[in-house]
Design a protein around this nucleic acid. Structure first.
Lengths: 112, 112
DNA sequence: TCAACGTATGAGTAAACGTTCAGATGAAGC
DNA sequence: GCTTCATCTGAACGTTTACTCATACGTTGA
């Protein structure tokens, strides 16, 4: 079955364990949805409350809340309470860089 | 409905158009699956043929082929023919960086 | 305490996804 | 030509996903 045994062995050695792979996939999956990327992009330069994010994402407040939960669980966003409102922000600088790299890649793909 | 009109306007202005958002989501979505990240990670340091990737990913050759099609369509991987084999490689340096940033983020999330 | 507001949660649903199976395509050797 | 091998493709399947609706939670102000 295996053709290039040495390469497979090397790749197998270099591959992170299943838990790490799953975590990695989960993070990308978090950004792998139009609504959630839009949320993340909107939070790039400022913090926003749920209802404003709903307006920007173009879906119901409930829908945004569900997606924010996903992003929270994956440590992409965090929030602070401001009275009745929950104001969300990006947690991690990695996310900023990842978004920008993704945009660069998407731009190249469109061009090519 | 909208609370912070200025912030919403600014975010709305900064948001890419729908097509770009969709493309961005698609790229992240491509890496947002354990099998496909594993494929991408395996290809980080070398090129590999389909059957070797199947062995590394732990699914059928057919399954890998389906996933490679996704990655091909999104310009994440490309392949060359070597006789009967199809040898795949990562196309884009952005992908390498994105993977590494993702790993860094995942590592931090595990720690925290 | 009560009502109003912003947010979170649970149920339900339609669509998308990842996999396997079976069969088609294409290249190499006889 | 035929056979074999590696890969690709289409159909079918079970699972997951992203949304809406209805409702519950938590905070504010009367």
């Amino acid at each position: 079955m295996i053709v290039d045994g040495a390469a497979v062995a090397a790749a197998s050695e270099a591959l992170p364990d299943d838990i790490c792979v799953a975590a990695l996939a989960a993070v990308f999956s978090a950004l792998g949805d139009p609504t959630r990327v839009r949320i993340a992009l909107a939070l790039l330069g400022r913090e926003l409350c749920v209802c404003d994010l709903a307006a920007l994402a173009g879906i119901s407040q409930s829908g945004v809340s569900h997606q924010l939960r996903v992003l929270r669980d994956l440590r992409v966003v965090a929030y602070r309470r401001d009275g009745k409102r929950a104001v969300y922000r990006l947690i991690d600088d990695h996310v900023r860089e990842v978004l920008e790299l993704g945009l660069a890649h998407a731009a190249e793909s469109e061009t090519g």
